[in-house]
Design a protein around this nucleic acid. Sequence first.
DNA 1: ACAATGACCCAGT
DNA 2: AACTGGGCCATTG
Length: 107
Amino acid sequence: MTKFEEKVYNVISLIPKGKVATYSDVAKAIGHPQAARAVGNALHKNPFAPVVPCHRVVNSNGYLAKNFGAGGIKEQQLRLQAEGVIFYNESKVSLTKYQYHFPKESI
DNA sequence: ACAATGACCCAGT
DNA sequence: AACTGGGCCATTG
């Protein structure tokens, strides 16, 4: 477990129920604005599958990750819907409505 | 230490 | 709107 991943999981657990955040935003929140990719990498491992609400993290288009682990994007979609998030398509959410902006520094 | 990989992002065509 | 290419960052072989 690296420090970087720790921060990632940490900020992600801050996302309130019924809201979503982009990889880019998460990256910014941990002080690495250009590390969106690394964030996705950290999530792919997802050591704390049930603990960290990784299903609340989407890409900048509002789409879910294609290679989502832990049951696939289908599972992710169900979890989000269960929290009150409405989907545009099979796997797209409205960022303007549900995107959560992290407080100044959430590290 | 080097090269390759990936749940990404942005700008250009 | 869809496709392409280049750039970023951390992890892994």
